[in-house]
Each structure stands twice: as C-alpha cells, then as structure tokens.
Amino acid sequence: MPAPDAVTTGRPGATRPVRSGPAVLMVLGSCVSLQVGAALAAQLFDTSGPAGTTLLRLGVAALVLLALARPRLRSWSRPQWRAVALFGGSLAGMNGSFYASIDRIPLGTAVTIEFLGPLVLAATQSRRLRDLGWVLLAGIGVALFGLGDGTGPGLDRLGVLFALSAAVFWALYILASSRVGALVPGQGGLAVAMAVGALVLAPLGAHGAAQALPDPHLLLLVGGTALLASVVPYTLEFAALRRLPERVFGVLLSLEPAVATLAGWLLLGQGTTALGLVAVAVVVSASVGSTLTARPTPQAVAAAP
C-alpha cells in the first residue's frame, strides 16, 4: 500500500475495471460484518479480556484462511517472510489496541478515532494543503468527543489512547500490507500474517483465550467473531476491489464510523448524543472528502480491524 488513497487505505486489492453491480453491496456488507464481529467480540471481554479475544479471533481466522489459501511457504524468500512478519506485527497491534479501546469506550467512538490513522497517512504522503485540511477537519470531529461521548461526562482516557494507538497501527498496517501485496501473490500473505499476529499476542492473551475454550457458547462467539470480523470482510472486499473504482470503494468504506455507531447502539446498547452524532458525521465527511480529492494510485490498500 504505497501512497494510500485516504480511506481507500482499507483492504488489499489490485487494479480494477470500472464495474459496480453487487460490489457496492459487498463493501456495505463488509462494513456491517466487521462491526457486528466487533460487537460479538465485546461479549468475550469479561471472560477472555481484549488480548485473549484478539488472539482467538486472529488464530481462528488464520486457520480458516490458511486452509483456503494454502500458501507455498517453502518457496518464499527472506524479503517475503520479513514483509509478512511486519504485516503480522502491525495486525496484532491494530486489533489488540482496537479491542482494548472498545472495552473502555463506545464502539462508534473508537472506530471514529481510529480513522485518524489512514487520514493522517494519506495527508503525509500527499503533502498537499487540502489533504491537511481534511485531517484537521477529522481532528475537530474527534475533539468533539472530548466534550461528551454520549454516555457520560467524558471518555475514558486510556480507551482513547488505545484507539489512537490503533490508528497508528492501522497506518503501519496499510504500509505493511502494501509491501506484502507487492511481494506475495494471492491471500497467502494475509493468512500467514494473521498467524504471526496470533503468535505475537500469545504471551499476553493465552491465559484469557484458554478461559473461553471449555465453554461451547463462548466458542460459538469466537467462531462468529473470527468469521464476521476477519474472513467475511476480507473476502467481500477482495471481490469488491476488482469491480469498483478506488474512489467509490473509499467513499463506501468511509461510512464505517457511522455503521459502528449504529452497531454499538443496536447490539451493545451504547447510546450517543446529538454532539456524538455530529462528531461522527464530521469525521465521515472528512474521510469522504479526502477520498474524493485524492490523487489516483495504482493500488488499493488494506483493512481496518
């Protein structure tokens, strides 16, 4: 993902012909699946904690994707392994930080703050004043949350720090996944990167993950989280990226904070205020504006948590 196109810094892809059709529904379905998966993951936190839940999600998703992709690991070169290892590390940091944040702050708020990562990356790579303006607008939207998150007088500061950390790792993830996309064919790089991410999180999450294993109900939640938050979104977006223009894909992806806010309300009972809705709208507007005014790039990029 060299030169990300604002929030088209979302998922791996290649040059696409301009065909839409069901592709729009694929992207929207991906956004919904991702946030429903996050809502399911939140139900595991009491038992497994954020680190254990992230380990379970990445581990199960890695097994599924490895079975589907069947990468030829023996033929990989040292640069390919290095790129995949960095990709896996950024994947672990992004997902681990994100789950730690939604353990403390509302889902929609965390996703909205996390969107600063790809926006800032796009602005730094562009060096255009207009792109900096979009980042500042998004910053204003995030700052509005400091005046009240819709559930109390203020946000949990550690939760905000985790969301900002997830934003940083998302930017790193975009760069790392771009490198893997250029070096490793197919989905093998993503599958192995998820396995690497699970290994990175094992020291922190192994104890928590083990607590969920004896409970069939929790195992169902783990399977649902892995499928809805990893396997389904990536599969849908890989297919959509081959059919949609990059900017259309990016605009659709920019709706994720709004979808996350809705999912938090419907699935987790997380309310919000008018100010919170304004904050989400401002960040979504900044993301859409950044996407529409970005310069075309030869590649699309890689995924949110």
Rank of each mutant, 00 (worst) to 15 (best):
V251K: 10
A240T: 05
L220K: 10
E237S: 05
G208E: 11
L220E: 11
L204C: 00
Q187I: 13
V278N: 09
T272R: 05
W170T: 06
S165A: 10
V180T: 14
V278C: 12
G271A: 14
G276P: 05
Q270T: 07
P216T: 00
A202I: 04
G189D: 04
P153F: 03
P153C: 04
E237F: 04
L262F: 14
A198S: 11
L213K: 09
G205C: 04
M194P: 08
A229Q: 04
T272Q: 09
L183W: 00
V222K: 03
R247D: 14
G276E: 05
G146S: 05
E237H: 06
V251W: 09
V283T: 12
A229E: 05
L255Y: 02
A260E: 11
Q211V: 15
A195K: 00
L155G: 03
R247A: 11
L275H: 04
S254H: 07
E246T: 14
L252T: 12
T235K: 06
P233F: 11
S254K: 06
W265S: 06
D215W: 10
T151Y: 00
P233W: 10
V283W: 10
L268P: 04
G150L: 04
A239C: 04
F238N: 10
L227K: 02
L213D: 08
S165P: 00
L268T: 01
L228Q: 03
L144K: 07
S178D: 14
G154F: 07
L218F: 08
A182N: 06
V231S: 01
G269M: 14
L221M: 11
A260S: 14
L255K: 01
T291V: 14
L227D: 06
R157P: 07
G289Y: 02
V200P: 03
P233V: 11
P153D: 07
V200L: 11
V288I: 15
L164F: 02
L155N: 02
G188F: 01
V184F: 06
V222Q: 09
L221A: 10
E246V: 14
Q211M: 15
L228C: 11
V160F: 04
S254E: 08
A240K: 06
G148Y: 05
G197L: 12
L218Y: 05
A163H: 01
A274K: 09
P216R: 01
A274H: 12
G186F: 13
V231P: 05
V232N: 00
G186Y: 13
V251N: 09
V168I: 12
P245S: 08
L161K: 12
P214S: 14
Q211S: 15
G159S: 12
W265V: 03
V259H: 08
L144V: 04
